[in-house]
Write a protein that binds this DNA or RNA. Structure first.
Length: 935
RNA sequence: GCUCAGAUGGUGGAACUGGUAGACACGCAGGACUUAAAAUCCUGUGACCUUAAAAGUCGUGCGGGUUCGAUUCCCGCUCUGAGUACCA
């Protein structure tokens, strides 16, 4: 029987499921290896051909590691809370849990069809109460913790209370809100329990606070910074506005430095590390206080100085004005009567501009003078105080010093409003025409730093400012705390209730706090989140629960630990499991999670480490980003008439220029090598059933464009269809063959035949003309062993460096060679089956059993050992040249090892004679054949 | 603007630390088998110039450089993709 992929694949998928072949035991006898995929959100559309790319790569790696003797953990689950199921619920009234369940079943069926070696006994679903119980538990740990800067780690809130009892707020160094009170131990003792709670909330790692949030009206919820792209929501593309709201936040800023430093210890793609570095946005500089010049007009100031942050404190003598963000709280107090109109107009104008307008409009210089003055602390100079929308309220202190000679934006501002431009470094050039941000040269016009260089000036100024208590060296991070609440239904309930307006945790033994049933998935009439609709949903029948739910990233920020011990109902993961599995050795997923999931996961991991629940500081040792598979859309060209109306004529791609045409998407599944199947097209678009087709060379050729893979472009290729016609093994190998794993590329099914032919050839290698299985036990021939060991070495090297595409080619070469040699040797073919099995597991299992082994043993058989001795070349003619010119032709027997060729060649008598005693600089071997001696 | 990645035949791509550029596959052309088609198998396939055969010249986005030798390293540019941005 020729290669019957359907039977073979069904048979083995069933076998693996029934025998739980890939169940990983927490067994310390073998070394562990943890291979993780980013678990999918089960969307209604099912998997397209791009989704499994990373899963196939991780599956090949997992299977390879098992053959190499590792105890491999390779689990899968679902990130099953999310917006689409809820949007669907709003439209149809169907409970999101039902939609999710249906979608998961589709996903599971599709995943099983590809033959993955997942350990399904460890499956997790973030929307399962048994799972979100522990997500809530972690939330509670965060609530019960504060970040102690002295020990540089999170600690239980009780250690903070002890400090308050002992010495009040004085020697507490914590990451906390800005408005914390200073108090003595005696003050603390006399506070009411409510007052204490209120104060502690400012220290907790998850806290409730009035803050500016990204509000998306269309989705009816707030969004985290990483969920907003260019002023629109990442999901759905709805406009997002800034709004002040009471919100749960996570104090991720406490971990900014550790998140930054940790990047140096992990093997991740450089672009992802770079994105995280930018996101954290560390800048080293100084904060400086400019005293507000007293004036009769401005009274009742809440503070008598304005604090700015600068990364160039050395330029402080060049400051010619100060700018506040229009939203800055001091603006109202500092505006003089004369300037009141200007300022009011400017603020009104700023408010009207959306986030997008502001970005589009960066070239226009705008601002308004407040009428007030401040004093430069180093020079005592009196300078004007302005407001301008280029200063952001949310970054630094919301105030900036303007140094026109050193900063182009400041230069433009100064020129526009006629403010002085002062040169401060002798190396600054041409500051009449543009700013020069150089750090070279010596300072001039700069008081006590005149004549110094950059490093000295910075150090001098920092200590001067600190001594005079008007500033100090400071590190600023761009990263903000992460907003944690969502005004949505389909998420983890936050395990908190309110008593006298203050939040309290529910008791641990009351977890999970179940998501209540509601009648409609919309906000209440009073504008509360959907959970406000739940009837009789009160803590102890009395207190209001928190009505917002957790964001999408909550459940995915710790799930890799749950896989280690997925069924545990007394711990989020047992100590034993964590001690054995420790961390993820290889994590494969898309780079779109760089500043979201991957950052939050590192944050929670560090937190759990601080509390001693996990072992490692970093959760994912190695990360690989698989490229995105784009769609490849096909087009037909409809001729349009004079009035621009579509006619009933369709013209082939090459001839379309001769007509006025409009392009129409055509289903890629009825196009083969850009040739349209006209009969199928008429079924696809019945309105063209009697259309005229203008052909070239008797064919209708379609146009091509690369777009996102989407239903609306008719370019979705479904893996199920390919499995139906070619089988899962072909699909797996073809997805790898398509190109380098990390590269984005458009999907093109054209080459799949080649891979299919290869597998059929491979199958035939084991069979005689009558399709009966046939191998012989003779001693393998030299050439056969050579072909085999070449592929063993190649595939081993390829898998270790994630170059799966090239090994597919090598398999093709090996099978062609063995076919030509008419190889039927058991030993050789058996090793070949083992080496190929991670890529094409079904066919290999089948052949493994035909070779006389027990079913299910292939996955744990040892990987064949590579023996370089088998790569010895027979007597071969070697041209030996000197400095590139051919002189000698030697006949020698050599291995393919470069070192050995060098030694053998130099030892050769003829070569020795030729060299006349001189020592060559270098011996160069080209492809093991050509030898060049450089004298 | 800044940061990062990339540019190789008709196409996807290979060439691992500088060493015969274009592996492997698709496509295309020709052939075998067939009444025919499909399937299968075989041969050819970077460009140019030639030939009976051979050989030769050019060739990895562009311009330079280092080297016996550069797709690979260095300098300068062009283009494409991704991320990011009044971040002080």
């Amino acid at each position: 029987m020729d290669y019957q992929f359907k039977e073979i694949e069904q048979k083995w998928q069933k076998f693996w499921a029934e025998h739980q072949t890939f169940k990983a035991e927490t067994d310390s006898a073998k070394p562990k290896f943890y291979v993780l995929d980013m678990f999918p959100y089960p969307s209604g559309a099912g998997l397209h051909v791009g989704h499994p790319l990373g899963y196939i790569a991780s599956d090949i790696f997992s299977r390879y590691k098992r053959l190499k003797g590792f105890n491999v953990l390779h689990p899968m689950g679902y990130d099953s809370f999310g917006l689409p199921a809820e949007q669907y619920a709003i439209q149809t009234g169907q409970h999101p849990a039902l939609t999710t369940e249906t979608n998961i079943n589709t996903y599971r069926k599709q995943l099983d069809g590809i033959g993955f070696s997942f350990d399904w006994s460890r499956e997790v679903r973030t929307s399962d109460p048994e799972y979100y119980k522990w997500t809530q538990w972690i939330f509670m740990q965060l609530f019960n913790s504060w970040y102690n800067l002295e020990t540089d780690r999170a600690e239980d809130i009780t250690t903070l209370i002890e400090k308050f009892n002992a010495a009040g707020s004085a020697d507490v160094k914590a990451v906390c809100d800005e408005d914390v009170k200073s108090f003595m131990p005696s003050d603390w003792a006399t506070m009411t329990s409510e007052e204490k709670q209120e104060e502690l909330l400012k220290y907790r790692l998850t806290y409730l606070k009035e803050s500016t949030v990204n509000w998306c009206a269309a989705l009816g919820t707030v969004l985290a910074n990483d969920e907003v792209k260019d002023g629109f929501s990442e999901r759905g593309g709805h406009p997002v506005e800034q709004k002040k709201m009471m919100q749960w936040s996570m104090r991720i800023s406490a971990y900014a430095e550790r998140l930054l430093q940790g990047l140096n210890t992990i093997d991740w793609p450089e672009p992802v590390k770079e994105m995280q570095r930018n996101w954290i946005g560390k800048s080293i500089g100084a904060s400086v206080r400019f005293a507000i010049e007293p004036s009769e007009e401005i009274t009742g100031l809440s503070q008598d100085f304005i604090e700015v942050f600068t990364t160039r404190v050395d330029t402080i003598f060049g400051v010619s004005y100060l700018v506040l963000a229009p939203e800055h709280e001091l603006v109202a107090q500092l505006t003089t009567a004369a300037q009141q109109n200007d300022i009011n107009n400017y603020i009104a104008q700023t408010k009207k501009k959306s986030e997008l307008d502001r970005m589009a409009d960066i070239k226009t210089v705008s601002g308004a003078f407040t009428g007030s003055y401040v004093v430069n602390p180093v020079s005592g100079e009196r300078i004007q105080l302005w407001i301008a929308d280029y200063v952001l309220a949310g970054y630094g202190t919301g105030a900036v010093m303007g140094v026109p000679s050193g900063d182009q934006r400041d230069w433009l501002f100064a020129r526009h409003f006629n403010l002085p431009v002062v040169q401060i470094l002798d190396a600054q050039k041409d500051i009449e025409h543009e700013a020069d941000p150089t750090k070279e040269g010596k300072y001039i016009n700069s008081g006590f730093i005149n004549g110094m260089g950059y490093d000295e000036a910075t150090a001098t100024l920092n200590s001067w400012l600190e001594e005079k208590e008007v500033g100090k060296a400071k590190i600023n991070y761009r990263m903000r705390d992460a907003i944690f609440g969502r005004q949505r239904y389909w998420g983890e309930p936050i395990p908190v209730y309110f008593k006298d307006g203050l939040p309290y945790l529910v008791k641990e033994e009351e977890l999970p706090l179940m998501l209540p049933e509601i009648d409609k998935y919309l906000p209440t009439e009073t504008g509360e989140p959907p959970l406000g609709r739940a009837e009789d949903w009160k803590y102890e029948d009395e207190y209001e629960y928190e009505l917002s739910t957790m964001p999408g990233w909550a459940g995915s920020s710790w799930y890799w630990y749950r896989y280690m011990d997925a069924k545990n109902d007394s711990d989020f993961v047992s100590k034993d499991a964590i001690e054995y599995w420790k961390d993820v050795d290889l994590y494969i997923g898309g780079s779109e999670h760089a500043t979201g999931h991957l950052l939050y996961s590192r944050f929670w991991n560090k937190f759990l480490k601080d509390l001693g629940y996990v072992q490692e500081e970093e959760p994912f040792k190695k990360l690989i980003n698989q490229g995105m598979i784009q769609g490849r859309s096909n087009f037909v060209y409809r001729v349009i008439d004079e009035e621009g109306r579509g006619t009933n004529k369709l013209v082939s791609y090459g001839l379309r220029k001769e007509y006025k045409t409009s392009a129409l998407h055509v289903d890629v599944n009825i196009v083969d090598n850009e040739i349209l199947d006209i009969a199928k097209f008429k079924l696809f678009r019945p309105e063209f059933a009697d259309a005229e087709f203008i052909l070239e060379n008797g064919k209708y050729i379609c146009g091509v464009e690369v777009e996102k893979m989407s239903k609306s472009y008719y370019n979705v290729v479904n893996p199920d269809m390919l499995i139906e016609s070619y089988g899962a093994d072909t699909l797996r190998m073809y997805e790898m063959f398509l190109g380098p794993l990390e590269q984005s590329k458009p999907w093109n099914t054209n080459g799949i035949e080649g891979v299919f032919k290869f597998l059929r050839k491979f199958w035939r290698l084991f069979h005689n003309e009558n399709w009966t299985f046939h191998v012989s036990d003779s001693v393998p021939a030299k050439a056969e062993l050579k072909a085999l060991h070449k592929i063993i070495k190649k595939v081993q090297d390829d898998v270790e460096r994630f170059s799966f595409n090239t090994s597919v080619s090598s398999f093709m070469i090996a099978v062609n060679e063995l076919t030509d040699l008419k190889c039927k040797n058991r030993q050789v073919l058996e090793d070949l089956v083992v080496v190929l099995s991670p890529y094409a597991p079904h066919i290999c299992e089948e052949l493994w059993v035909l070779l006389g082994h027990d079913a299910g043993t292939l996955s744990y058989t040892p990987y064949p050992t590579f023996n370089p001795a088998h790569l010895v070349e027979d007597e071969f003619s070697y041209p030996v040249s000197v400095n590139g010119k051919t002189r000698l032709n030697l006949s020698m027997s050599l291995t393919l090892d470069v070192k050995q060729i060098e030694e053998t060649v130099l030892a050769n008598e003829d070569v020795q004679k030729y060299l006349e005693g001189k020592t060559p600089k270098k011996v160069i071997v080209v492809k093991g054949r050509i030898v060049n001696i450089v004298l």
